[in-house]
Design a protein around this nucleic acid. Structure first.
Lengths: 216, 216, 216, 216
DNA sequence: GATGAATGAGGCTTCATTCAT
DNA sequence: GATGAATGAAGCCTCATTCAT
């Protein structure tokens, strides 16, 4: 995420296996990605032009197309990487010995933590207005499928009740997560991080309308 | 489709005070709204042009602007009415004597029923890609706020636990609903209506990861 | 110039030779002309639409074309009549026994008087922005030609010096008149009526840069 | 045509600091300005489209907007420059030691000379139909104000008679000039250059209806 | 590679005019 | 005649993309 400012050719060490030219090229590419990230987060896919991104990155309009085949490709690259990162966070969130109910809190925590540190990415991934048709990359669908698949195996092994359909569950969980986290990333003063985590956890463990007589 | 009750040209009674011209005008307007509904549902706001809508409605391009000030106005009219209808369905869903937990099932049922009968509207209301900035009509935000407000008063009167923050709850509930129902409306063969209702209800009453030892 | 409000069919006396229908039709026509006058004066020819005029006159858009073949025709009719009125004023301005120099003041006075009482017409006739090509009616050219012709005969009879070319004179006089009077009609507080008359007269009699030693 | 000195592509020296690209861009811009000049002179502001100008300049429609924010901006640029040139001509017209009456002839001569060499510009500057509201650039008003201001100080110092109001004078002079010169620029065969100059001069020095007994 | 001027298809909107009622 | 809904040509402008330098 760190901005890479090395645009001048003064990269003193031709150390490993990258030439100065290669490094300069990579730096331009990175700057375009970062500019896209910033602008898409603020304005959404279709109110940002390729010129906007190039200008924000300090390069000419044509340079954009030396690095990405079109606007959608840049966008996809941003979301793909963001998705990879997010999935990694979520996957590695659970302790070794945690049971499913402990995992719920750990995942909520990982999700909110990722959102706190990658607000731009969250707004891009989960904003509405991300025309999934134009940009062949439906992040939410991917996450929902994954959640469904995991759920299905849990049901198979008897860990989860069958009243909850795994497909519907996947959509519900991801819908809930995405909206909460996008809302919160727009303005993190809307709630404390802990409150967001706690509420997501409570809903998953007890529902939104728990029976007051439920033990705990 | 049941939403708009004046679409067929069989208005048998010129009885009251509508002239032929007025009826013709209203019919054109209705056709434009219906065309908008169909095209927006399939393609999303910004891949549909005012010409597309006019052509689909069988009128000339300019006619569009005799009825709507611009594309966003037509869109807003569709979503506004859809939102009104949906909120009415949800509001009137609960029986007189129902307790909160019964209401949960009744609401889920109303939501899914509405989706079944208004698939196009659901896809418009709840699709991502609805550029709320262009169109000044954020349906989801409206619903979330409403849910938050209701929740807040329930907490006040002690009917609901304070661990669940009302704001976060509103986002979570609406996010879950919107995604599930939009997903289902795309293809209602994905799950039976009952399964969708049951799953939404279970999640609200017991969470996604209920404690197997919970009584019920 | 008086507004004719008789749009309802209650014209009680079928007196002379006009039927009620004929009178109603004429009244509509008059209202359109008046509306055109008002709107053109304020906004210029091409920022006024035929709808604007019809609406201002309280009739339907189509009615416009029952009375005028197109927008230019209405405009032409307004300017033609205005021109006729103005020429009449100017022509009848000179006393029977006045010499040319007395006539100059009388004409200036008639011009300014006409402007005071027909501010809308003046602004239409003499405004810039009156696209003379679109609207085959170049009022200024007409007036200039007339002035040239008169001048030519005066030169012939030896009443006026030959140093002043009659064609150029016509353009110069009309240019001066039109601009001064249009400027003044926009806001008659810009100068008193007398000052305008006096200045125009002085310029015609002595020029803008009179020799201080000229007798008078 | 003498106004814009960089129109031919024979820029022999890439000497100083202009790159080839910069020169090409400037050339396109110049071509657009020239096309605008030609087309506006012939057809007036609002019968010329941005496409017309682009086509006439031999570039694509979009190119127009790479150089000018809209049609009005191009128009304004043409008139602003033309006005600057014209004012410069007029300002520098008077000899050092000339008295006011000599200046009159020198100014008339400069005006007509400018018109002879910049017929297109004159037709644009002084045509009617220049919708000053659309284009925020009222050349005539500017010139009239300037003339009024100068006149006012001459009156103050006693060089000019007070019977001629400076405001009215400004309008009258500019109206006369503009009309004469626009008329002549349309077709310079209408009068010889000398006749135009002489007539304007005579009118300013002696008026249109001089007293035959005036000495001179 | 980088540059940035040029391209031109495409979307939006206006408005003079027609015509069925 | 009057009505006013419908028409569709025409103008404006944007922006993704190309390509010569």
């Amino acid at each position: 995420m760190s901005v890479n400012p090395s645009q001048n050719s003064s990269a003193p060490k031709p150390s490993s296996r990258t030439t100065a030219g290669e490094r300069a090229r990579a730096a331009t590419r990175t700057r375009l990605l970062e500019s896209g990230r910033t602008l898409f987060a603020e304005n959404g896919l279709h109110r940002v032009t390729s010129h906007d991104i190039a200008a924000h990155a300090g390069v000419a309009a044509g340079t954009f197309y030396n690095h990405f085949s079109d606007k959608a490709a840049l966008f996809r690259e941003i979301t793909d990487e963001a998705l990879r990162e997010l999935m990694k966070s979520l996957e590695s969130a659970a302790d070794a010995g945690a049971d499913h109910r402990q995992e719920v809190r750990q995942r909520a925590s990982a999700l909110v933590g990722f959102a706190a540190e990658n607000r731009e990415l969250i707004r891009i991934l989960f904003s509405r207005e991300t025309d999934a048709t134009t940009v062949q990359s439906d992040v939410l669908q991917h996450m929902a499928s994954r959640a469904s698949a995991v759920r299905k195996s849990l049901i198979h092994e008897g860990s989860m009740p069958a009243e909850i359909d795994p497909e519907v569950f996947g959509q519900a969980l991801i819908g809930m997560w995405a909206r909460v986290v996008a809302w919160w990333a727009e303005d993190t003063d809307r709630a404390s991080r802990e409150v967001v985590i706690e509420t997501l956890t409570q809903i998953q463990l007890h529902g939104t309308h728990p029976n007051h007589n439920d033990p705990e």
